[in-house]
Design a binder for these strands. Structure first.
Lengths: 138, 138
DNA sequence: TTAAAAAGCTATAGTGACTACAGGTTCAAG
DNA sequence: CTTGAACCTGTAGTCACTATAGCTTTTTAA
């Protein structure tokens, strides 16, 4: 790979779409790169590393605001322990909620086969929260 | 509760915010209700039942487009088995992905304590996908 | 009865994290 | 030198709401 490369090459190298790269630049997550004489963006390795970091963080579910913090930590050689821990807890909560949900869906689906034709358990349960074992009031 | 009631009363009865009720009407998920002489919305029990159905479905994670289908099924006394099954699979996939994620976060966090001061495992792993045990390439 | 407060109205813009489009320009290959 | 792929900017759309501004109507208390 040459020293300076295009947005398409950066896209290919990181798996991040061209539009998304430009979007990250617009919101200040990626720095403005150099430009060719004709005005096209020209990146180098530092950009690629930063973008890979961003994409990897996104894949692990961090928000762009989290990532802003993570990038600062990275630059200052600080520790991102607390951000990671906070995120871990949020992920765990989401897992718990979704598991309860899946159990309820399983129950609805399995009981549906038993009903008379024209009587759908799924619709019934959705119509009447009293029939629902899951607490999703909050 | 009287036969006809206001949007605020409907909101209170269903736990659905006033703005959200108006939004559902705008996108055609809730029918246009009667109006008072002064132009305020006046609902009755049928509206409340429909809105409860919608909210309960949302709490179980169905999209508004899913719910449009579910409402049709409900009106036609059809079975929503397939919609529920499809959704169950989507939820299960999400759980699997999030569980892998949480494991990776746990690993990052636990290994962070072992590093020298100034060396954060979290940042390291985020910088280098090769150090990551989780497959989140797709 | 009347004044104030609460609740309602419409229309519009904002959220997060992109994605898609229109209509033009630049670049690299043949 | 021509063609076509890749690039540019700017704007609008996605989902499922939420929030705001600036009004009008309804309800409650004095």
């Amino acid at each position: 790979m040459p020293t300076l490369f295009s947005i398409g090459t950066l896209s290919h190298a990181t798996g991040c779409k061209v539009e998304t790269i430009r979007y990250y630049e617009k919101i200040g997550l990626m720095p403005e790169p150099a430009r060719s004489e004709g005005g096209q963006r020209r990146y180098h390795r530092r950009h690629q590393e930063r973008l890979s970091f961003i994409r990897h963080s996104r894949e692990l579910g961090f928000t762009l605001e989290d990532i802003r913090e993570l990038l600062t930590m990275r630059e200052q050689h600080g520790c991102a322990d607390d951000i990671a821990r906070r995120h871990r807890d949020a992920v765990q909560n989401r897992i718990s909620a979704l598991t309860a949900l899946r159990n309820e869906l399983d129950r609805m689906i399995s009981e549906c086969g038993d009903g008379q034709p024209g009587e759908c358990r799924v619709i019934e349960v959705l119509s009447d929260h009293g029939q629902c074992l899951t607490d999703h009031s909050g």
